Computed example of a mutant assay.
Amino acid sequence: MGHSTGRHRWWRPVLGTLLALGVYVVLVVLLIALSYGFGAAAGLRELPEGGHDFGPLVNTALDLTFIAVALPLMLLAVWWPGRRPPGTLSSVDGRLRWRWLVRCLLVAVLPVALLAVSAVFLPDSGSGSGESVVWVGWRSFLTSLVVLAVFVPVQAAAEEYVFRGWLTQAVGAFVRSPWFAVIPQAVLFAAAHGWGTRWGFLGLLVFGLVCGGLTIRTGGLEAAVALHALNNLMAFGVAAAIVDGLSSDETAADSPWQLALVDMATTLLYAALVLWLARRHRPQRFSPPVSESAPPPWDVRPPAGARFTDPA
């Protein structure tokens, strides 16, 4: 997408990555300091790992916010120093294609539902401690769902814009085949979730590879965002239904082999369904060619020598 605008320079992806990473670290430190200050002022209990205990739901919302702040930083990195419209990070159309996103969300319901059922009934797929599961009650559960419905999609989208968006396009600017850009982002995506079990890491790696492949095959991030958001909503929703479920520090990286295998199978099922859907609706896959006489549709710069007059 950087090349398609005609403004690509080799240093733009490098500088954008360094600046976004630096600003992200600063913002997270500031958010941690603010939350610590509020917690201290409210006299809340300090946690062993640092910070204060705002309660499972607020703590989860804070953790999601720390990730979500990366989303505007990626868009800013595309705009400057990338010097191209932020929408070119979303798709080859230069925007987020909402109709295609909704279709992908509907397709994701079946695979995510199968994964949710498996998470409940597979052995060793729960907490792994042998403790009994206690229902939190409808009031607490519905309150948690409302909060999670606000924060989780933004957090999931932020991860997709970082890995399948910025990193894929940054690496893709230096290789001839876009498929070589899929592997680095998938490895970094799995590593970013920490090292839990080998199967958990493999499941995340497959997820990153599949989402990267779908991004290229469909020409945008919509398919990856849909699966990631719905998958995370399911995982957090299941945790919110259990007493102290949101307090657990386990992630997908800690998945046992049974659940990791089901996760990989449902991810591949989703990929097959999206590719089938893409054959029917044919979303745009390639960016428009660069031409001085016919610039890309998202390029709103006035032509050279254009003059403006006051309509009044």
Results as ranks from 00 to 15, higher is better:
residue 101 L to H: 05
residue 304 A to G: 15
residue 54 F to K: 06
residue 273 L to F: 09
residue 135 W to I: 11
residue 12 R to M: 08
residue 247 S to D: 15
residue 165 G to S: 04
residue 191 A to S: 03
residue 134 V to L: 09
residue 158 A to H: 02
residue 116 A to E: 01
residue 64 L to W: 00
residue 106 L to C: 13
residue 200 G to I: 06
residue 223 A to M: 03
residue 148 L to K: 07
residue 36 Y to L: 09
residue 306 A to P: 00
residue 217 R to I: 06
residue 119 A to I: 02
residue 9 R to W: 00
residue 269 L to F: 05
residue 289 P to A: 07
residue 309 T to H: 13
residue 73 L to G: 01
residue 233 L to H: 06
residue 85 P to I: 08
residue 29 V to S: 10
residue 232 N to C: 07
residue 53 D to W: 02
residue 292 E to A: 14
residue 175 V to W: 11
residue 234 M to W: 08
residue 178 P to M: 12
residue 124 D to F: 08
residue 70 A to H: 00
residue 248 S to D: 14
residue 246 L to C: 11
residue 164 R to F: 01
residue 213 G to S: 07
residue 278 A to R: 13
residue 23 V to K: 02
residue 122 L to I: 10
residue 278 A to H: 03
residue 256 P to E: 05
residue 179 W to R: 13
residue 192 A to Y: 05
residue 295 P to E: 13
residue 93 D to C: 03
residue 140 S to T: 13
residue 3 H to I: 08
residue 279 R to Y: 05
residue 138 W to C: 05
residue 284 Q to F: 01
residue 193 H to D: 02
residue 107 V to R: 02
residue 302 P to M: 09
residue 173 A to F: 06
residue 185 Q to C: 02
residue 83 R to V: 04
residue 243 V to D: 15
residue 112 V to M: 12
residue 120 V to I: 14
residue 256 P to M: 06
residue 267 T to Q: 12
residue 186 A to S: 15
residue 31 L to S: 04
residue 281 H to S: 11
residue 180 F to N: 02
residue 134 V to S: 14
residue 172 G to D: 09
residue 150 V to L: 14
residue 231 N to E: 04
residue 155 Q to I: 03
residue 131 E to K: 11
residue 77 A to C: 04
residue 103 R to H: 06
residue 96 L to M: 09
residue 143 T to E: 12
residue 182 V to A: 11
residue 166 W to L: 09
residue 286 F to N: 10
residue 42 A to K: 07
residue 31 L to F: 10
residue 163 F to Q: 12
residue 159 E to M: 02
residue 221 L to W: 10
residue 211 C to T: 08
residue 184 P to A: 05
residue 171 V to T: 07
residue 307 R to W: 13
residue 100 W to Y: 11
residue 1 M to Q: 13
residue 51 G to E: 02
residue 61 A to N: 00
residue 306 A to D: 01
residue 97 R to I: 05
residue 280 R to N: 05
residue 261 L to M: 11
residue 124 D to Y: 04
residue 263 D to G: 13
residue 269 L to H: 04
residue 7 R to I: 09
residue 75 L to S: 00
residue 280 R to E: 08
residue 31 L to P: 04
residue 36 Y to F: 10
residue 198 R to P: 05
residue 74 M to N: 00
residue 45 R to Y: 01
residue 301 R to E: 14
residue 90 S to N: 00
residue 292 E to R: 13
residue 149 A to P: 01
residue 86 P to G: 08
residue 108 A to F: 05
residue 19 L to Y: 03
residue 22 G to H: 00
residue 62 L to F: 09
residue 243 V to H: 14
residue 65 T to N: 00
residue 198 R to A: 11
residue 311 P to N: 06
residue 13 P to T: 05
residue 269 L to V: 03
residue 286 F to V: 15
residue 61 A to S: 14
residue 279 R to E: 14
residue 126 G to F: 12
residue 264 M to A: 10
residue 206 V to T: 09
residue 301 R to Q: 12
residue 21 L to F: 09
residue 45 R to T: 15
residue 125 S to G: 15
residue 203 G to Q: 03
residue 70 A to K: 07
residue 14 V to S: 01
residue 220 G to V: 08
